[in-house]
């Protein structure tokens, strides 16, 4: 996330950097060894997935309707959850970055709570509020006849709850890194806060929003704990890819679980790489 801040701080053309000094000194072993161990620790489990994949039957398993249903549901819900997070999270980030109000530090801390909360706890909390017997859920059920648990909307709610802090933090970082002189100039030229926001601020921090959106989407795609606790597990309705992986593994079908994991890995890495090329590195 620090990196994202830097990128957005760099939206304004910088003075030319001093020429980089060549690092001709040797890399200290005390740094190199843990670095390599850390890399191995991150890469080995993924390599394990590739090694243990049942390559012979891979294509047949890839095209099984169950896998495709779960994948489609995952992509749809993660995308809708990201849109929800953008609609609510960007204004929230703006509020935190641009408006002085009492208790702002507390609000910022509250925003990051879902980030450190175990997602299962988030799912329980969502049930207590939006469940059929929950604080708001009772009212929703009685007044509008809407219940969220066990619905695809419930999956989106769970994913948005867990993923939104990533977006808010990234966008707030972008806002803080952006040069406020452009906004001040717009204000002196008579633009109101809304016009300034839509015509100056948004274009200025677009790369930051894109980066935050990608992060948010990736987190939503991988969501498991809040989803299974709050939305339940039913194929085609609430069973996203992570839930399908879990159920397949629990059922003893190890190679099936590996195939599903590989699909999720390949799809998410491909999409992230494509978005990265399009949005993030262009900044």
């Amino acid at each position: 996330m620090v990196r994202i801040d830097e990128r957005n701080a760099a939206v304004e053309p910088r003075p030319a950097r001093p020429p980089r000094r060549r690092h001709t000194q040797r890399v200290p072993v005390a740094l190199l060894l843990p670095a390599v161990a850390g890399l191995a620790f991150l890469v080995l489990p993924l390599a394990g997935l590739v090694v243990r994949a049942p390559w012979a039957t891979l294509w047949q398993r890839l095209t099984e309707p169950g896998a495709l249903t779960a994948l489609r549901l995952s992509l749809q819900t993660a995308t809708v959850a990201t849109l929800v997070c953008l609609a609510l999270g960007v204004p929230l980030a703006w509020l935190l970055a641009r408006v002085e109000f009492p208790g702002r530090r507390v609000v910022r801390a509250l925003v990051t709570v879902p980030l450190v909360l175990p997602p299962v706890v988030g799912g329980v909390a969502l049930l207590l509020v939006f469940g059929r017997k929950g604080l708001l859920g009772t009212w929703l059920d009685a007044a509008v006849g809407v219940t969220l648990p066990f619905t695809t909307t419930g999956v989106v709610v769970a994913e948005a709850f867990v993923a939104m802090p990533f977006l808010v933090i990234a966008v707030e970082g972008a806002l803080r890194g952006a040069d406020t002189r452009f906004e001040e100039a717009a204000a002196t030229l008579g633009a109101g806060r809304w016009t300034t926001f839509t015509h100056v601020t948004l274009p200025l921090i677009a790369p930051g929003i894109a980066a935050g959106g990608v992060l948010c989407w990736a987190r939503a795609l991988g969501e498991f704990g809040a989803t299974i606790t709050f939305a339940g597990n039913y194929p085609g309705i609430t069973q996203t890819m992570p839930l399908a992986v879990y159920q397949t593994m629990e059922g003893g079908d190890l190679s099936g679980a590996v195939v599903l994991s590989l699909i999720l890995l390949i799809v998410s890495v491909t999409i992230l790489a494509a978005l990265r090329d399009k949005w993030i590195t262009s900044g």
Partner: peptide, 21 residues
């Protein structure tokens, strides 16, 4: 047509206790 397929019997029971099913 169930609304959810739980991973063990206590999880299914919990949904009744919570009033969700």
């Amino acid at each position: 047509t169930p609304v959810t397929l739980e991973q063990d019997v206590k999880a299914a029971l919990a949904k009744v206790r919570l009033g969700e099913v």
